[in-house]
Amino acid sequence: MGNCLKSPNTDDISLLRGSDAGPEVSSEQSANMGPPPPYQESIPIYHPSPNVSRPANQLTEEEQIKIAQRLGLINHLPTGVFDGTSKKAKECCICMEEFLLGDMLRFLPCMHTYHKDCIDDWLMRSFICPSCLEPVDAALLTTYETS
């Protein structure tokens, strides 16, 4: 089976957000240090489970499938821009910051709302809503079945 999580240069975040997130090592840093030894090439880090961090090339096949499925599912969750009209969603409980006009939000099926960047970071580790502990994918799959 082929590796569905290829490319040492795109990490999970850049796949989600487009190309705005660059590699973690800044160009200044790498210029000072010279070319990195081969084993230090920036291999994206994934979190197959919360509290587990592994470079992409050390993931088991099962974990690779899990992460690929997550990337797909995350993209199906609706996003939006905070316009101040929602009385319910006021604060992102991951960063504990209040939503500001223009913030990018993501809405989970359980109706909990977070900053897109905050919740995407968590969803790459776990598909449980941080607030109500409802499995996000269960709700998504039910939506598919009924529609």
Binding site: N51, C93, P130, S131
Partner: peptide, 10 residues
């Protein structure tokens, strides 16, 4: 503290 941690906890 491990398995059931959520970022909404503090």
């Amino acid at each position: 503290l491990t398995d059931d941690w959520s970022p909404a906890l503090s």
